[in-house]
Each structure stands twice: as C-alpha cells, then as structure tokens.
C-alpha cells in the first residue's frame, strides 16, 4: 500500500459533516416531496453535501440549516431544468459526434394529452373550494402573481391571501392523492 499524508485534525470539516448528518433526514424528506422520488432526493442530497463541502472553510458562523435548505432548493430546481446535460451534449456535437439521433419533434401528443387530463382533475378539485380561495390559488400558481398583487386585485389583505393559498394547497393535495390512489 502506498503511503498517505494524514490530514491534520480539522474540527471544522468534522463539525460540518456531523451537522450535515443530523440534518440529512429532514433534507431528504423535503427533497423527496419536491422531486417526487426518493432516489432523486438522495442524489441531490449528496450534491448538497459536496457543494458545501467544497467551501467548508468559509461556512463558519453561517446558519447551516438555511444554507442546506437554500442550496437543496436551488439544486432541485437546477435538477428539474438540468441544463448541465444539454451543454455536455452540445460539446459532443461540436466534435462532430452527433449522428443517428432519432428525435421526435412532433408535439409529443402523449404528454399533452396526459397534461390535459391532469388539468381537468385539478380543475375539478379546485371547484370544491370556496370561490375566493380558488381564485387566490389560481392566480398564485397559474398566473404566477405575488401575494401582494393578488391581495390588491381582490381587495383583501396579504395574510388572508396566504391563508387561502395554503388552504387550497392542503385540500387539493389531499384530494389529488386520494384520487390517484383509486388506480
């Protein structure tokens, strides 16, 4: 076996590792909900660790929990967009490697059809809500308006709008899960 240079006792890195381990279950729970897959969540969780580990010496004094969750949130969003792969595929392209890719550029009828069904389900579930609650949620989620904008448009307080959105989320999520369970 080849000799290794031992690393000095580095309390800082060790403390980070311990804190990460302590937070890992919560982080995984959050990412599983966000990404819809435990395996994906574990992948991203690992990336969060590596990303923060890279600059572990600068993290002293920062609030680790918020650091972990904000990093996880960003990586999860990146993951969903995943531009990284596109860049890699393009670099292969530059080398002249692009050849026999068979891509269907037609408007992926299957996905559109599935999304329409989902939209119908969402619509039906939303109908079960009181009108103001439904309106607030549709503006928030599908018109991407801020709480303040919705509050102004509906002549209600911002905190009322937040309550409506939460109520709608809670109700719709439970109903959606219930209906999915019927399969």
């Amino acid at each position: 076996m080849l000799p290794f240079v031992g690393r000095d006792a580095n309390g800082h890195a060790g403390a980070f590792r311990d804190a990460f381990r302590a937070n890992e279950p919560r982080l995984l729970a959050f990412l599983t909900a966000r990404l819809g897959s435990r395996a994906e969540a574990q992948d991203v969780c690992q990336s969060v660790f590596l990303k923060l580990w890279e600059r572990v010496d600068e993290l002293h004094g920062d609030n680790l929990t918020s650091l972990l969750f904000v990093t996880a949130r960003n990586l999860a969003t990146d993951r969903m967009r995943s531009s990284g792969w596109r860049a890699r595929a393009e670099s292969l392209d530059d080398e002249g490697a692009l050849t026999a890719q068979i891509a269907d550029d037609a408007p992926h009828a299957e996905r559109v059809l599935a999304a329409r069904h989902e939209l119908k389900v969402i619509g039906a579930i939303l109908q079960e809500l009181p009108e103001k609650c439904r309106t607030a949620f549709i503006r928030y989620k599908f018109h991407e308006e801020s709480y303040a904008e919705i509050a102004a448009a509906m002549a209600l307080t911002e905190s009322m709008i937040r309550k409506y959105v939460l109520r709608a989320m809670a109700h719709c999520a439970a109903r959606y899960a219930q209906l999915e369970g019927w399969e």
């Binding site: 599983t32 909900a33 966000r34 990404l35 819809g36 996905r111 559109v112 999304a115 329409r116 989902e118 939209l119 119908k120 969402i122 619509g123 939303l126 549709i138 989620k141 599908f142 018109h143 989320m169 809670a170 719709c172 999520a173 439970a174 959606y176 899960a177």
Partner: peptide, 25 residues
C-alpha cells in the same frame, strides 16, 4: 402529497399553453 400536487401543477403549466390552462380553470 403537497409536493406532488404542486409538481403536477408546475408540469401542467409548463406543458400546456397558458390560454388553455386559464380557459379550463
């Protein structure tokens, strides 16, 4: 369930034209 439902909403919004979503909802 909440994460899942919100992701389904995102997926619908990303896949279908806004007009269609608005017309339905």
């Amino acid at each position: 369930n909440i994460g899942h439902f919100m992701a389904v909403c995102d997926h619908v919004a990303a896949t279908l034209p806004t007009q269609e979503v608005v017309a339905e909802l």
